[in-house]
Computed example of a mutant assay.
Amino acid sequence: MDLKLFFNPTEVDVDKDATSFQSSIYINRHKMPDHEGMDMALIGLCEYRGENEKADVKSADEVRKQLYGLKKGFGDYGIIDLGNFRNGPTLEDTYLRLKEVCGYLMEKDIVPILFGGSHDLDLGQYFGYESAEKLVSVLNIDNSMDFDDDQSPAKGHVGTILKHSPNYLFSYYHLAYQSYLTDQKSIELVERLSFEAVRLGVVKENIKEIEPIVRDADMLSFDMSALQAFYAPAASNAKVYGLTGEEACQLTWYAGQNEKMSSIGLYNYDASQDSKDRKTAFVMSTMIWYFVEGYYHRKGDKNFKSNDYLMYEVHLGGEPETIRFYKSKLSERWWMEVPNPEAEGLFNRNRMIACNYSDYDLALKGELPDRWMNFYNKV
């Protein structure tokens, strides 16, 4: 694929310091760099027709200005900034172009990092998995559930994902929704489909308990409106209550560490609404930085048959009779297995569920973890 056909070069040039983020990556300025062998690809988005056509179409470059000035983190970077994505003649054309590019990059084991644009652009991100021949788990972080396609594409994109054909959605997780902004019917729909929704208060109460949910996802879609307006004044729907900047960075750090996570999108940033010191752009840039940092701290938690894992079999005395738990010696993270001898092909990769020690402790008391039962119902 000739990627330069899909991108406009960036003119952002901030920090010549050898220790800066900018000096540690390959950037599409006058010539598209070679992307072969790269780990991640930065993609600026300028498409806002799904929600607010008056938004600043140069918003992605404001994030770049903040990101480029940060110091390089851990690891040997293999990161390319492809530039700003060229919109299609119609909004639907933009989705399809994004689908093509994201699908291509993921086939090359390059993680797309999308930033800017309206939240409905995660449709292009999700469509990119269509040819991957696997079932996909989607993590959406937003202060409300966007199921209403009668309003705008940005208010109905999740409903579009749920109804999309062909259907390759295995799990849908929604974090940090605010009850007073969310229709109860949407919450009931998520529960009825054996998906999972966690309200803001639960996320903030103990964010470490949320890590297994992030670890189970293939794709992260993050609406900046999930943050408090203090941290994200340029997110159109941000409220007084929400995640802090530190909590948002913690979640993207978890996402980076997730071996399954193959794409991430940070959406709903309008630079024209940002503070003079570009507070929202700075928060977004640090979220990207923490994702990159998490990526280069991955422990290789994939082969559960290796000697890198301890296996614990808990006898429940009911149905199921036992549950197997696995603990990584490398990362000390936990998983539980859903036994299903008939599960082959698409379902097979989803038999291991990320969990915490608290789930293991619950099983020791003879109780079945809710997440185990939800997954069992699906497979």
Rank of each mutant, 00 (worst) to 15 (best):
K185I: 07
N28E: 03
D148L: 00
V214T: 05
H35V: 14
E342L: 14
V214L: 10
N258S: 15
P212K: 12
C249Q: 14
D149M: 03
I207H: 09
A154E: 02
E107F: 04
M219N: 01
D183S: 05
M261K: 00
I323M: 11
W372F: 15
D17F: 14
P166L: 07
F325D: 11
Y180T: 02
A41H: 06
V202M: 06
Y104C: 00
L243A: 05
E319F: 10
L91S: 07
N348K: 15
L96K: 12
F230S: 09
D218M: 04
T252G: 05
Y360T: 08
W372H: 04
Q178F: 04
Y126P: 01
L346H: 14
T10R: 04
D149R: 05
K299Y: 10
D183G: 01
D146L: 06
E100Q: 15
D361W: 11
W289G: 02
S194E: 10
D359Y: 04
Q273S: 06
Y77M: 06
V136L: 06
L121G: 07
L139M: 09
I27Q: 00
K208L: 08
P320L: 01
G75K: 04
E332Y: 13
Y296H: 12
L5N: 15
V203S: 06
S331N: 11
V198L: 13
L105H: 02
L169I: 09
Y177C: 13
E92W: 10
V101P: 02
A255R: 06
N348M: 12
L175K: 07
S331P: 12
G69E: 08
D223A: 13
G69D: 12
